[in-house]
């Protein structure tokens, strides 16, 4: 089995789908000749031609409109927003147009668009590149939101996202692009959207998380184990819709849970997960469900990221608080 970084797995997924379906088209700013600013589309234009993999003018809203129009004429668009902080420029196309296409047409039309975009902090970008804006997407009915944390998951989830007949926002945490390699099968495989993955089993406390925080949570679980606390780490992988069955089964088993996100406390999806647990499993709880999040400021300047983004120590602290409640 091949060892790949997450970005290589993402490229591999797009290559697979470009081969698999001639209606798949990949486009965005710098995705053609340049292969994308992160090289996510490296070599794809050369392999599949300019008709299939192409650069767009520099205008996010236009890219969103292009995707909707191509979707209506039988294509399966995979559009890139160069950094997710730029999503505000294309928010109408995503939230008011694609997300409503099926509803507005009473099921006649759909927008089979995949929106790929890098997000998340820790790589010292300029302002409005790294922001964790996934909560805005979660609050928008009509779209799915996928956030992989490993190269293996990245490939299977992206293939599923591209094949999905509804719009999928697929967010790629920048810090995970090249930070490690993992085993990725060369053949195609899919991972069902809307399913979480238990990355580590445990019996004392559930750590529910996604994105880069999966890795901080796994590190925290190692620390907790030294103190005799067995933590279960759930990687949501799809944050909209949530995999409610996996979350609730875990909480029923452990009776204790924390939700961990890199986003601010008022952003992300932590509050929604807590609300769902309260709705469905409150009588199983031995302690309140706590959250590990960033503070409610705007996403910080590069030199403040390290003190702002939660880390494994914050997770250990909250997990112990819940465990010792």
């Amino acid at each position: 089995m091949a060892q790949m970084t997450m970005i290589q797995a993402i490229t591999d997924a797009m290559r697979n789908e470009l081969k698999n379906n001639e209606d798949v088209v990949v486009f965005g700013e710098d995705v053609g000749q340049n292969g994308g600013v992160f090289r996510a589309t490296e070599g794809l234009q050369k392999e599949f031609g300019e008709e299939r993999v192409f650069d767009t003018p520099l205008a996010e809203s236009g890219i969103g409109g292009l995707a909707i129009g191509l979707g209506l004429t039988g294509f399966r668009p995979v559009m890139e927003i160069q950094f997710f902080g730029f999503v505000f420029e294309v928010f109408d196309s995503v939230a008011a147009q694609m997300a409503r296409m099926r509803y507005r047409s009473g099921g006649v039309y759909n927008s089979p668009v995949t929106i790929r975009s890098p997000f998340g902090g820790g790589v010292k970008t300029p302002e409005l590149h790294a922001d964790s804006l996934e909560g805005l997407m979660y609050q928008t009915p009509g779209i799915k939101v996928v956030i992989p944390s490993t190269p293996y998951d990245a490939k299977g989830l992206l293939i599923s996202a591209i094949r999905d007949n509804d719009p999928v926002v697929y967010l790629e945490h920048m810090k995970l692009y090249r930070s490690f390699r993992g085993e990725v099968p060369e053949e195609e495989y899919t991972i069902e959207l809307g399913k979480a993955d238990v990355k580590r089993e445990g019996k004392d406390v559930s750590i529910i998380t996604y994105g880069a925080m999966v890795h901080a949570s796994l590190k925290a679980a190692d620390e907790l184990e030294k103190d005799g606390i067995s933590a279960e780490v759930i990687d949501l992988m799809t944050i909209s819709p949530l995999d409610i069955d996996t979350i609730i089964a875990s909480v029923e088993k452990t009776g204790r849970a924390i939700v961990v996100q890199e986003a601010q406390k008022q952003a992300g999806i932590g509050a929604f997960v807590v609300a769902e647990i309260n709705d469905r499993a409150i009588l199983n709880l031995e302690a309140p469900v706590l959250r590990v999040t960033a503070p409610d400021t705007v996403f910080p300047y590069a030199s403040a990221e390290d003190v702002w983004i939660p880390d494994h120590r914050d997770i250990v602290e909250k997990a112990k608080k819940v465990y010792n409640f």
Binding site: V25, E51, S61, G62, G64, G65, G69, L72, T73, Q97
Partner: peptide, 13 residues
Amino acid sequence: IQAAGVGLGLKKK
């Protein structure tokens, strides 16, 4: 902007 996309789609097809 959607019309630009539909127009491009028709051309590509």
